[in-house]
Simulated scan of single mutants.
Amino acid sequence: MITRARAVLALVLGLAAPAGIWVLWFFALTAFGSEGALPPKSRIPDPPPGASVVEESEQCGSGGCWWQVTLAPAAGQSPAELARRMGLTEERSLPPRLLDPGYVYVGSEARGDHLVVHVGYQ
Rank of each mutant, 00 (worst) to 15 (best):
V104S: 10
Q77L: 10
A5S: 13
A10Q: 07
D113W: 12
I2C: 00
P95E: 08
E35Y: 13
E90I: 04
A28D: 12
P96A: 07
P40Y: 03
D46L: 07
G14S: 04
L94G: 08
A75Q: 15
A16P: 03
P49F: 14
R6M: 10
G63V: 04
P45M: 03
V8F: 10
V106N: 01
L88D: 08
E56S: 11
G20P: 02
W66I: 02
L99C: 00
Y121R: 12
G76W: 05
G33W: 05
S42T: 06
A31I: 09
L98E: 03
Q77K: 11
S57R: 15
V117G: 03
Q122S: 11
V117T: 06
I2V: 11
A80R: 12
Y121A: 05
T89Q: 10
P79E: 07
Y103W: 12
P40V: 05
A110W: 01
P45R: 02
T89K: 01
A19S: 11
P47I: 00
S57D: 09
F32K: 14
P49T: 11
L9T: 09
P47Q: 03
S78Q: 04
H114N: 12
F26K: 14
T70M: 08
E109N: 01
L94T: 12
G63H: 13
G36A: 15
E56C: 00
L11V: 13
A72Q: 15
V23L: 15
G64P: 10
L29S: 08
A31T: 12
P79C: 03
I21E: 06
Y121W: 08
R97D: 10
V116Y: 00
C65K: 04
P96T: 02
L82K: 06
L99Q: 01
A19N: 03
R84K: 14
V12D: 07
Y105F: 15
S78K: 13
Y105L: 02
L115W: 04
G107R: 04
L71F: 06
A19C: 03
T89P: 00
Q59R: 11
L13K: 03
A80V: 07
P73T: 08
T30M: 06
W67H: 07
A17D: 06
A31G: 11
W25F: 11
A51T: 05
A7C: 06
V12S: 05
I21N: 04
W25K: 06
Y121E: 09
S78T: 15
R85E: 15
L82P: 05
V104H: 09
E56F: 00
F27A: 04
A80S: 14
V117W: 01
G14Q: 02
G76S: 14
L15R: 01
A17G: 12
G76Q: 12
P48R: 07
C65M: 05
P45E: 11
L38C: 09
P40T: 04
A17L: 14
I44M: 02
A37Q: 11
S34T: 15
T3L: 09
